[in-house]
Design a protein around this nucleic acid. Structure first.
Lengths: 121, 121
DNA sequence: AAACATACCTTGTAATACTACGTATACGTC
DNA sequence: GACGTATACGTAGTATTACAAGGTATGTTT
């Protein structure tokens, strides 16, 4: 067992937290998607893995905040799906969040740069 | 009042969360610092503003995890200060976290890139 | 010795996401 | 047409994180 694995990925989880809302809005930037689809895409393309019990409450919150809208759609392969898309407000908010996040990412990048060089392993 | 300021900076807070531990470890990478000093430096150089009630519990946690050590030091300008520095384990952990964070930052950057271009204001 | 400044610390609370479970619809197969 | 399975959505309870608000201790200034 790796010596670094004892308190195992608590901090990984911590760092991933808080980005889910923005990630969901970003997923809907170009296309309408349904819940599990958003989840799978983020899992495939990003490091953002979230449980079903996580995404649905967030989608509810986003909807009640007026950032997204939804509609039930019958599916070819059985079982209906609830598709979501951005409202005008949601689109503006997503862009604003992205700009803020971008600045934040720069700060963090600068902050941790020294720790990425040679490291006395 | 800006039209975007209604649900005000909940999401900003959200995005900042989770990075505090790494930010504190990064602050201690080169030098020993005391609590309020860490807080002020992060406020000046990064976007990471945290309350006193936030930093001390984190410092306690980091210490009980064996990532940092501390020592009281008398100050010239009155009132003693508690200086913190990284342990060997803390240094390894900080480097590991930084590598993980770096990868994560890339994913997020890619994810939000489309939202940063021209935006239908 | 009273007022102020610095620094550290603690208690209670709100928000976020997770685990675990429950519900609904449709398909296949016998 | 009943049963098992797969897909998709949803909820209740819980743990963690950070914050707001307040408290303690030391030293300086007047």
């Amino acid at each position: 067992m790796s010596p670094e694995t004892d308190g195992p990925n608590n901090w990984e989880r911590q760092v991933r937290k808080g980005w889910l809302e923005l990630a969901i809005l970003a997923s809907l930037w170009q296309e309408k998607l349904y819940g599990l689809d958003i989840l799978r895409r983020l899992e495939d393309h990003s490091d953002l893995v979230m449980a079903e019990g996580t995404i649905y409450p967030i989608l509810s919150r986003l909807k009640s905040d007026g950032l997204i809208e939804s509609k039930w759609v019958e599916s070819d392969s059985g079982h209906p799906r609830k598709y979501y898309w951005l409202t005008a407000l949601g689109r503006r908010r997503a862009a604003t969040m992205a700009r803020y996040a971008s600045g934040f990412l720069s700060h963090i990048t600068t902050l941790i740069a020294p720790l990425l060089g040679k490291e006395g392993k």
